[in-house]
Design a protein around this nucleic acid. Structure first.
Lengths: 254, 254
DNA sequence: CGGAAAAATTAACACGTGTTAAAGTATGGA
DNA sequence: TCCATACTTTAACACGTGTTAATTTTTCCG
C-alpha cells in the first residue's frame, strides 16, 4: 500500500533504504474514510497533512452560485495539502470521492522530514511543483480545449499518474468516479459529460463502463487531445534541443 | 522600487530591518526588458529567478493548436518562477507584457535566503502558496463564471494585488494590457473581450480606456462577480466562526 | 508629422454547451 | 430480495461565445 508513495517519490531521485524506512514509519497510522466526506473544509486551519493510500480524493471550491468545482484530483501516493501549513486558513476544501485509506501526518512530522531528510524533502518539494504544473495544465485545457479533448486529456493524464503507482494496465484503469464528478472536474454539465463520453466511444477511443476506463487506442487518444506529458515531469531530465525557442509566438489568440 | 517586494512580503509577518537590508542587497542588479519578450522559454532550465520591479509579466503556455494561454499575471513585487529550481525543465514560458524592470536572482541566492533567513524564507513560501491559490481561483472562474463575471473578478483581484504594492488608487489603476492579452488570460476571444468590456461599462461598473481601469462602483463590481478575497490571503488570520462547515454540499453541479 | 502596423470596434452568422425535464438503469442498505 | 436513492441517458430548445471579416482608431517610429 505505502509502496505507492515510495514508488512515486522515487521518480525524482534515488531514495535510500533508510528513506524508505522513514516513509514507512511516518505512514503507519492509516484510516478508512467513506466516500464523499470532507477531510478538511474551507475556512479550517488543519493540523494534519493527508496522504492518500487508496481511493480518489479531490480538492474543490464552491462558487457563490453553489456549483462545486474540482481543482485537483489526488490518487494513491499523492499528498492532499502538503502546502497548507503556512497559510492561515484553507481557501478550499478537500474531500474523498470514493472510499479511501488516508494517512494523517502531523505538521510537525512534515517539518521534521523537510529539515532532516534532504532527499525526502527534495522529493516532496518536487511533488508539490508537479501538482502546480497539473493545475496549470487543467487551466489551459479549460480555456483552450473543447469538451472531448479536455476529457481525453484527463484520461491520458490519469493513465500516466496511475501507472506510476501501479494502478493502471496498458489498456485502462479503474475509474470509480461518477459522471457528476467528471463534470465538476472538467467544467461541464453532467449531461454534456455523458454526450462527450459517447462521442469518444463512437470514435473508438475509450469506453467507460462499470467504473473502469478502457483505452482502445492510446496513440490515437493522445493525438486527439494533443497530449504532451512533459508537465507531469515523470521522465528523467533530457538534454535534447529545445523546440520552443524557434517558434515563439506572442500574440496568437485563436 | 524595491519597496514593492518588501511591502508585499510584510503582509505575512514582521520582517526585521535586517531582513529589509538583505532583500535590498539581493535586488540591486535590475534590468530593463522591452515589452513582449520571453524571460524564460518552455523547455529551458533557467539559472535565475525573476523578480518584477515594474511592469506586467505573464506565465503562458502555447497549446498544440497555437493559441497562447496566460496562466498567471505577475505585477511588481511578484516573483515569476520561485519554484522552478527543482524541476528539470520549464513546462511553460514567462514573458513581459509591457516594458519591465526585473531583477535576476541566481538560484544560489534563493537557496541562501531560504536556508539562512527564516523570516524571509517563510514569506517566500507564503508568496508561492498565494500564487497557487490565485491559480485555483482562475481555474474555478474559467469553469464556473461567465465572461463578464470572470473579467470583473480579475479586475477586483488586481485592485487588491496592486493596492498592496501601492500601484492602485481607490477608484482604479493603470492596466497597460491589450484586449488580446486579456483574452488570452480570461480564455475568451479578443472580440468577446471587447463586447464584455462594453457590457461592464454599460452597467456603469468599470471603464477601461487609455490603458487605465476606472472602477466606478467597487461594491457593485464585487457583488456582480461574487468576489471573495480570502484566497489572496492578504488579511491577517481571524478566528471567526467557519461558515463553510454548516453548508457542506457535495454533489451540487448546477 | 505622416505612414505603417497594431489594436479596437462592429456586424452577421455558426456552433458548442447549458438547461430542463423525463425516463431508464444501476446501486446499496434493510 | 426489494425498495429507495443515486446515477445515467435521451431529447428539445436556448443562449453564450466563437468565427470571420471589414472598418475605424490608436500607437509607434522614422
Amino acid at each position: 500500500m505505502l509502496n505507492t508513495l515510495i514508488r512515486k517519490l522515487s521518480i525524482v531521485g534515488k531514495l535510500t533504504e533508510g528513506d524508505h524506512e522513514t516513509l514507512r514509519r511516518v505512514s503507519v497510522r492509516s484510516r478508512q474514510v467513506p466516500a464523499r466526506q470532507d477531510l478538511t473544509t474551507e475556512g479550517d486551519r488543519p493540523e494534519n497533512v493527508h496522504l492518500v493510500l487508496s481511493g480518489f480524493v479531490c480538492r474543490y471550491k464552491i462558487l457563490p452560485k453553489g456549483q462545486r468545482h474540482i481543482t485537483a484530483l489526488m490518487v494513491p501516493g499523492d499528498f492532499c495539502d502538503l502546502h497548507v501549513a503556512i497559510l492561515d486558513e484553507m481557501d478550499h476544501s478537500i474531500a474523498t470521492l470514493t472510499p479511501c485509506t488516508v494517512v494523517e501526518i502531523p505538521r510537525s512530522t512534515i517539518r521534521d522530514l523537510t529539515e532532516n531528510h534532504p532527499r525526502i524533502a527534495h522529493a516532496l518539494w518536487w511533488a508539490t511543483l508537479v501538482d502546480d504544473a497539473v493545475l496549470r495544465e487543467w487551466l489551459v485545457g479549460l480555456a483552450g480545449r473543447e469538451a472531448a479533448e479536455r476529457m481525453a486529456h484527463l484520461f491520458c493524464e490519469l493513465l500516466l499518474r496511475l501507472s506510476v503507482v501501479g494502478l493502471a494496465e496498458k489498456d485502462g484503469y479503474a475509474l470509480p468516479l461518477t459522471q457528476i464528478d467528471l463534470a465538476d472536474m472538467l467544467g461541464l454539465t453532467p449531461v454534456h459529460v455523458n454526450r462527450t463520453l459517447q462521442h469518444l466511444r463512437s470514435k473508438d477511443l475509450i469506453v467507460l463502463r462499470k467504473r473502469r476506463l478502457e483505452i482502445l487506442d492510446i496513440a490515437r487518444l493522445k493525438a486527439f487531445c494533443g497530449f504532451v506529458p512533459t508537465y507531469l515531469h515523470h521522465t528523467p531530465r533530457t538534454n535534447k534541443l529545445n523546440p520552443h525557442q524557434h517558434k515563439l509566438q506572442m500574440s496568437a489568440s485563436g
